[in-house]
Design a protein around this nucleic acid. Sequence first.
DNA 1: CTTATAAATGACCGGCTAGTCATTTAGGGA
DNA 2: TCCCTAAATGACTAGCCGGTCATTTATAAG
Lengths: 239, 239
Amino acid sequence: MQHSNPTTDPSASEQAPQHLQDASSRWQRRKDARPEEILDAALHLFSEKGFSATRMQDVARAAGISKGTLYLYFSNKEAIFYQVVQQRITPQLDQVESMVDASTGSQADLLKQLINGWWLGVACSSLSAIPKIITAEAGNFPELARYFTLNVVTRSRKLFSRVIERGMQRGEFRQYDADTVARLVIAPLVQATIWMHSLKPYDDDAGTQQYLQLHCEFILNSLLQDRSPNANSSEGTMP
Amino acid sequence: MQHSNPTTDPSASEQAPQHLQDASSRWQRRKDARPEEILDAALHLFSEKGFSATRMQDVARAAGISKGTLYLYFSNKEAIFYQVVQQRITPQLDQVESMVDASTGSQADLLKQLINGWWLGVACSSLSAIPKIITAEAGNFPELARYFTLNVVTRSRKLFSRVIERGMQRGEFRQYDADTVARLVIAPLVQATIWMHSLKPYDDDAGTQQYLQLHCEFILNSLLQDRSPNANSSEGTMP
DNA sequence: CTTATAAATGACCGGCTAGTCATTTAGGGA
DNA sequence: TCCCTAAATGACTAGCCGGTCATTTATAAG
């Protein structure tokens, strides 16, 4: 089967491995730097092509090494993905968790912060493709799916539902099932992110900014005790 | 690579091809029935494993024929998918479109009908896996992605945005960008459907019923002119 | 029953890729 | 400077899968 992909050209020369361009030697020993470089390259390619479709050969080239060298640092393809999650996502979650714990302002503001933070930290970052990759490959890599669900999905949702719950306890929010509300808050975010990496190129986009803004507004319209959704006003600052 | 999939055991004997179990002959000529049977088998397997991971061999076995026979009826794997879309999705869309055109009641009711209809007709049907498949494989099968976006996604969204637009024109709904609202209405539905076929097995579910119900309620809280989100009352009938 | 034909088969081919390992070579230490 | 060792290489293997085609066989017509 031949597939001509409009967005990614497999025959295009990868960006030159920019570590030390001097032609003094065929290669260098760089034991310490390799793992990070490999993870960077892998994350970038996973984002572009997905997990299955990314060839170890491609990861190697993008990292400026040969295929064999990959296996000096990672036992197999899945191990690379685990490390990507462990080293790039978990620390961010830790950070956001402590941010939520330390917060003192209104829960509405905090919720907005979480939504915008998620957007900037995931949708607009190098992690952007992870949700699509995970959902796409869950069936073929169940261990990986279980790991991700436990260590990222559930934790993230708890973060949202804790804020929502707190808002309800303080009388700032109306009473709903916090976990369900959290799902409703997150779903459009995740969906938009998956979209970016799947059908967006074929769809005439109507502006992500407005989408995010309106989502915030709708959620708070229903959550906040003292708001009727009249003022279509600017809802604080959106990035 | 070895993957042990908890939900699907590849070595398990497929359900016996139940057409005429008598052992009188090794096989029968059934030119007319084959295409439908192949599409059924394919849709079922695509739902279970995704597009790439479904082997033509598996489709053949599930349809009760040999691999070679597949190619008497479909020119290749992608052709099977196109037919699945064309024969199982497009007709449903036609039907819903005329339903919307013929509708006379309130746009809020119509919108609720659309949401529930989408849920029953997609999430709870054999088409349930299509959104996941398409988003997962879009990168590797761009033609297929373009076709689906044009013929299903855009059409569906137009359906929703038309109803929303009409509601605004009649003063039943508040003024927003109809297309963006349509995206916000659809996103949690699609997201939940993708979820069902990816990480749901690893996540402790909190009840899909409540999710759908609350989604409807939140959307209408913001859209309807004369509602403040006080009465957490039952929001009409949910299936 | 015999025969013609087209439906159905499944061994096979070609291409592709995760992972291996004998060989090469960078570069620090003596 | 030379040597040693471990970092790096890339040709190679094994196995998988979409698609083909020469062969087999159901079955309808004569």
